[in-house]
Amino acid sequence: MIGAIRIAVILGLFVSLVISLVPFQYLFVKARLGWQQSLPRFFHRIAAWLLGFRVKVKGEIVQDRPLLLVANHVSWSDIVVLSSVANVCFIAKSEVRKWPVFGTFAVLQRTVFVEREKKGRTAQQASDIALRLAGGDAMVLFPEGTTSDGNRVLPFKTSLFGAAHAAIREAGEEQVIVQPVSIAYTGVHGMPMGRFHRPIASWPGEVQLMPHLKGILKEGAIDVEIRFGEPMRVSADTSRKELARIMEERVTTMLQSSLMGREITPSAEDQ
């Protein structure tokens, strides 16, 4: 009974937050005002608190631009926690646009939607991302292409890494900064989560969104560690496949460091 009341209160506060801020973001986006970048961070900071995420950050996001952030992907909540600590925009699969509520949020955060299954559109989609990079937006790419179980990093797909080269080629940039980011769900109610309890936070594709959201609300206290790693300065000569490999290794090392609670030395190939 108490749990149901708590969930109802949180949902009520969340609805109030949406009603209060979403109309302003709509106007900021339409008018292309500077607040269109910072209001989502304010919104997600409150949303993360309501959902019970306790976010810890290690490292810093690079301030130079153009900047492409490359992160592992565990759950829909990655967007909430990452947006709560930095002014970022996301690259998401086209299906997200059709999701109830979350699709609207994605549009208002100026998400770039891509159709990963249509290989013929890869160049155009990379070009769209490149224009946003050249315009100063810090874009977040989830190169796994799907969500994982939160205990590991899935192989990175290389296709959209071409956005970095497209920004150099089409926008006249000399180089693009690519920075690895890891998102680790590490604890619940102050206790280590462990790999067998990671499904509390992780959201594999076969799990329905609303039951998973209800589970998050029921727990009410989930620890998340976000790490911003060592960036790479990418030029026109940088191999896309090599870039993806290095980013995958760095994200994997950071994720395992967060999950194990101790620093792991990067592989010799990445040093």
Rank of each mutant, 00 (worst) to 15 (best):
residue 121 R to L: 11
residue 206 E to K: 03
residue 214 K to C: 01
residue 85 V to K: 14
residue 65 R to W: 00
residue 216 I to H: 06
residue 112 V to L: 02
residue 167 A to C: 13
residue 210 M to W: 14
residue 80 V to F: 05
residue 73 H to R: 04
residue 96 V to N: 01
residue 219 E to Q: 13
residue 247 M to N: 05
residue 163 A to L: 13
residue 94 S to I: 03
residue 134 A to L: 04
residue 142 F to M: 00
residue 54 R to D: 02
residue 271 Q to F: 15
residue 224 V to I: 07
residue 178 V to P: 10
residue 104 T to K: 01
residue 39 L to N: 10
residue 260 M to P: 07
residue 233 R to W: 11
residue 82 L to K: 10
residue 160 L to H: 07
residue 133 L to F: 02
residue 190 G to T: 13
residue 76 W to R: 04
residue 120 G to A: 11
residue 133 L to W: 02
residue 33 L to F: 13
residue 35 W to G: 09
residue 76 W to V: 03
residue 174 E to R: 06
residue 127 S to N: 06
residue 147 T to C: 15
residue 71 A to R: 03
residue 41 R to T: 08
residue 17 L to M: 04
residue 88 V to N: 12
residue 130 A to S: 04
residue 38 S to T: 12
residue 261 G to I: 11
residue 249 E to A: 12
residue 186 T to I: 15
residue 103 G to A: 08
residue 95 E to T: 03
residue 116 R to M: 12
residue 32 R to P: 07
residue 187 G to V: 13
residue 238 T to G: 15
residue 166 A to K: 15
residue 207 V to G: 12
residue 110 R to V: 04
residue 203 W to Q: 05
residue 204 P to I: 14
residue 214 K to M: 05
residue 60 E to D: 11
residue 66 P to V: 08
residue 187 G to H: 06
residue 202 S to N: 07
residue 28 F to T: 09
residue 269 E to A: 13
residue 95 E to N: 04
residue 74 V to P: 00
residue 176 V to L: 09
residue 72 N to L: 04
residue 64 D to Q: 10
residue 117 E to Q: 03
residue 163 A to T: 07
residue 130 A to C: 02
residue 155 P to V: 08
residue 146 T to S: 14
residue 154 L to M: 10
residue 50 L to E: 08
residue 12 G to Y: 14
residue 169 R to N: 11
residue 115 E to W: 05
